Amino acid sequence: MIQQIYPQVNHDYQYELNKDMHLSAAHYVPHESAGPCRNVHGHTYFVNVTIAGDTLDESGFLVNFKTLKNLVHGQFDHTILNEHALFQSGSPEDFPTTEVVARKISEVIQAELDQLPGKPVCVQVFVRETPTSYVVFRPKKVKSNG
């Protein structure tokens, strides 16, 4: 695997965990201004998720890497993104663009993290759609563990 350097997130948490994943998925952007992207096409997305927190669980983990892989890779790999309920509202805020995919991944992960006793936070999701194009999503409000 090629080592990738990601944009850094400023936070005051003691621990920061990063998980890299690849997703093979198809999508289309249902808007006339999307040009050729209106047609179904696929990508091998490269995703990096950054989780931060102050409290480790009973296993000594901030979050188990496998949990993150199941949430993202397990849900989206080898699928057509438009077929997921997350992307079907009809609103441009839910079209499966790279920006929205990054935000939705953050939301899916944070919903799971909110159930954990240590309350870790998803502070960044990096999604590379092509070798020359990527998006970084950071929630505006990062919750505090306190």
Rank of each mutant, 00 (worst) to 15 (best):
E129K: 02
L17G: 10
R38E: 11
I109W: 02
P117R: 04
A85S: 10
D57C: 04
V9C: 06
D94S: 15
L23N: 03
V72M: 12
N10L: 15
T67V: 09
D77I: 10
D20P: 01
G42N: 11
D54N: 12
R128S: 04
Y45E: 00
I105T: 04
K66M: 01
V40W: 07
L81S: 15
K140W: 15
E83Y: 11
C122D: 03
P92E: 05
L23A: 14
M21K: 10
K19T: 13
L113T: 04
P7R: 01
V136K: 08
T79C: 12
K140S: 13
L68S: 00
L81K: 05
N18L: 02
K143T: 08
H43K: 07
H73R: 14
D20R: 02
G118A: 09
T132M: 09
R138Y: 06
Y45G: 02
P117N: 09
D114W: 14
Q115R: 14
R103V: 04
E16T: 15
K141V: 15
V47M: 06
V125W: 13
F46D: 07
G35T: 07
P96Q: 03
L116C: 03
I2H: 06
K141T: 14
H41V: 00
P96C: 03
A85Y: 07
A111C: 12
M1W: 08
P120R: 05
A52F: 04
D114M: 03
L71T: 03
I5T: 00
A34Q: 12
G74Y: 03
P120Q: 08
A52N: 00
A26C: 12
Q88A: 14
L56G: 00
V136M: 07
D94I: 13
H73E: 09
S33P: 12
H78T: 06
L113C: 03
F87T: 10
F76K: 10
L86A: 13
D57K: 09
T50G: 01
A102T: 00
M1S: 02
S59P: 13
T98R: 07
V135K: 09
V135R: 10
D57G: 14
N145V: 14
P117C: 06
Q88L: 13
N48M: 06
A26G: 01
Y13L: 13
K19R: 03
P96F: 05
K143P: 15
N10E: 12
L17Q: 04
A52H: 03
K141G: 12
K66D: 00
S91Y: 10
V135C: 11
V100I: 11
L56C: 04
T55Y: 11
A52R: 03
R138Q: 13
E107W: 02
N145Y: 12
P7S: 06
V9A: 12
Q8V: 13
S89A: 01
G118C: 05
H22A: 13
I109K: 06
V63M: 01
T67K: 11
